[in-house]
């Protein structure tokens, strides 16, 4: 069997090196050098301009809020769904279907609702109520994040609730715990791996999105994702773009480290599957 090893390991190792490892190293290279290839930290310091700091703060605040609200909304929903009889399984499907629709179209739907001449304002006008300025605000972006990512919070929690052995819950009641105690001491800790993968699956995409802010923030509200995207597609300054990406990656690493700290299961990435 030994002779086959090269044939088996070769293709994916080459692929991983060429399209995963080297690309990442290139970001480090561009982020830490200037146009002539000399080492510099100025690309990272570029994050310090007031405009970019504002975008970074807004991204952090909105993504944290969206993650928190998704968790608050998804947990009770997951509990209700998990308690349903299997014959009612189609109800679970109903809550998952929207996720299968192209996410750009889902955000387009909200644009249509929130616009100045959009559906919500039409209704307000018909009811002779004052029009609201909804689109191009941070609120609109936050709403878009919650709508877009809610299913990614719902599913891991739902799956981990399904795995709980009902005997464990009954044992807690038998031993005198009330509903509240049972939830906080038994149910919630058992679903923690689901909660944690839900949090990472919402937080990282929300922090780094540029589509949601493009569609719902116009060009008026910028997130850090927009700032970086523009460096590459419009400004064409790869060094600054890569430097800003490095800063962004620090926040992703911090969130992963925090999540690993809470998730004792030690499965790392495998927990997502």
């Amino acid at each position: 069997m030994k002779k086959h090893n090269g044939l088996i390991n070769g293709p994916y190792l080459v692929w991983t090196a060429a399209f995963i490892v080297i690309p990442l190293l290139l970001i480090f290279y561009y982020g830490l050098t200037d146009k002539s290839g000399h080492f510099t930290l100025s690309n990272i310091a570029e994050m310090g301009t007031p405009e970019r700091m504002k975008a970074l703060w807004l991204s952090l605040i909105l993504s944290l809020l969206a993650t928190f609200i998704c968790l608050l909304m998804a947990y009770p929903l997951a509990m209700i769904l998990a308690k349903m009889k299997t014959a009612m399984g189609f109800i679970v499907t109903i809550f998952i279907i929207p996720m299968w629709m192209n996410s750009l179209l889902r955000i387009l739907a909200w644009q249509t609702l929130l616009e100045r001449n959009g559906v919500i304002n039409q209704f307000l006008r018909m009811a002779h109520l004052p029009e609201q300025h909804l689109i191009n605000t941070p609120y609109a972006i936050g709403l878009g994040m919650i709508y877009d990512f809610l299913p990614f919070m719902l599913l891991p929690i739902y799956n981990s609730l399904l795995k709980i052995d009902s005997n464990v819950i009954n044992a807690a009641y038998d031993l005198g715990a009330n509903r509240w105690q049972t939830f906080w001491k038994v149910t919630f800790p058992l679903t923690l791996p689901g909660v944690i993968s839900g949090i990472t699956m919402v937080f990282v995409p929300a922090l780094t999105t540029f589509v949601i802010s493009d569609f719902l923030g116009g060009s008026k509200v910028l997130l850090i994702g927009n700032v970086i995207e523009q460096q590459f597609t419009q400004v064409g300054n790869w060094n600054v773009g890569s430097g800003l990406s490095l800063v962004l990656m620090v926040f992703i690493l911090i969130s992963m480290a925090l999540m690993n700290h809470f998730d004792k299961s030690d499965e790392g990435a495998a927990g997502i599957l």
Binding site: Y12, L13, T16, A18, F19, I20, V21, I22, P23, L24, L26, I27, Y30, V204, P205, L207, T208, F210, G225, I228, E229, F232, W238, G241, S242, S245, L248, M249, I252, M256, G268, A269, I272
Partner: peptide, 24 residues
């Protein structure tokens, strides 16, 4: 080590993966 390298695109932000591929 190999598993961690393979998993990078799953854990990293998509915007960073996209940019890094464009650069490469």
């Amino acid at each position: 080590v190999i598993m961690s390298a393979l998993n990078i695109p799953m854990l990293n932000a998509e915007i960073v993966t996209g940019i890094s591929l464009m650069l490469v």
